[in-house]
């Protein structure tokens, strides 16, 4: 194996920031039983991304973020509309909404890209973490990270601050939505905040992990942590720890076997989940 270079360092920093952001949001998604809505959002922000690409220059601009936030909220609004107003069952509401928005996104790409390689279906599905170091920011000869890092970094801090500041709110809507509502907590506010954050993180990780694998970042560490603990704060810490380990080990394995990086990270996270699941499964059997 080649020695890891500073480029690898930049890739790893990006992956860690993505995985930590996803881990925090994923815990709440999981506890709110909204994983599928989160999954839907990761796909349905596509039209927002495409429109922003068409309007502005390249990927990392703030229009992309606005577009993503808008389509993320739109997704939950449409799902709620189909489910509550039009009485379509929930799984079908989710499945139809995100496939439709994704389809609209793909059609937009086809209509306007015309061979423009900037954005295509494939990059939406896979992403390529290994190339993230290419948009290096260099100042006076010092590497100050990459553009991606400078996008996701503040996002991670924002999430961290929001979650610490609003921990009680997030905590109470995670476990007892009805109780929260009866206590006068604005459930909708927290709900949509969570959805907007999921949309933003998804978009920021589009190029490096892709729409499908980001779900793995969102759900695998929290689910594994949840098997190990039931206390919210512990779940968060375990989850972040697992995410960190998964990123580091997955990255090294990907280099070792010379395969795609982000799928390898998700696979590593999945393997850790599998081990935890098997051990915990035997334990419960033993107890029975």
């Amino acid at each position: 194996m080649e020695m890891l270079s500073s480029n690898d360092g930049l890739n790893i920093i990006l992956a860690l920031l993505i995985s930590w952001s996803c881990s925090i949001l994923g815990v709440f998604l999981m506890l709110r039983k909204m994983v599928m809505v989160g999954d839907a959002i990761t796909h349905s922000v596509l039209p927002g991304v495409v429109i922003a690409y068409l309007m502005g220059s390249g990927g990392e601009n703030y229009i992309v973020l606005l577009g993503a936030a808008f389509f993320g909220v739109l997704t939950t609004v449409i799902i709620d509309f189909l489910f509550r107003k039009l009485k379509l069952q929930e799984d079908a509401s989710i499945g139809l909404t995100f496939t439709w928005l994704f389809a609209v996104g793909v059609v937009l790409i086809a209509f306007f890209s015309d061979g423009n390689a900037d954005i295509d279906q494939e990059c939406v599905l896979f992403g390529e973490l290994g190339l993230s170091f290419m948009d290096k920011i260099i100042w006076n000869g010092y590497v100050l990270g990459t553009k991606s890092i400078w996008m996701i970094g503040p996002m991670f801090l924002l999430i961290l601050i929001l979650v610490i500041k609003g921990f009680k709110g997030f905590q109470i809507i995670s476990f007892q939505t009805d109780y929260a509502a009866s206590k006068g907590i604005k459930v909708n506010k927290w709900h949509y905040l969570l959805m907007i954050l999921v949309s933003l993180v998804t978009v920021l990780s589009f190029e490096s992990v892709g729409a499908i694998l980001v779900v793995g970042f969102l759900i695998l560490p929290p689910a594994t942590a949840y098997l190990l603990s039931s206390r919210l704060i512990r779940i968060h810490f375990i989850s972040i720890g697992l995410a960190t380990a998964g990123v580091l080990i997955g990255y090294l394995l990907a280099q070792w076997f010379d395969v795609s990086i982000s799928p390898m990270i998700v696979l590593t996270l999945g393997f850790v989940f599998f081990l935890t699941f098997v051990i915990k499964m035997q334990n419960t059997k033993h107890l029975k």
């Binding site: 989160g38 499908i212 759900i219 799928p263 990270i265 999945g270």
Partner: peptide, 10 residues
């Protein structure tokens, strides 16, 4: 979600 992403990653 777990099964979807892990198998897809594989």
């Amino acid at each position: 979600a777990i099964v979807t992403t892990v198998y897809f990653a594989l």
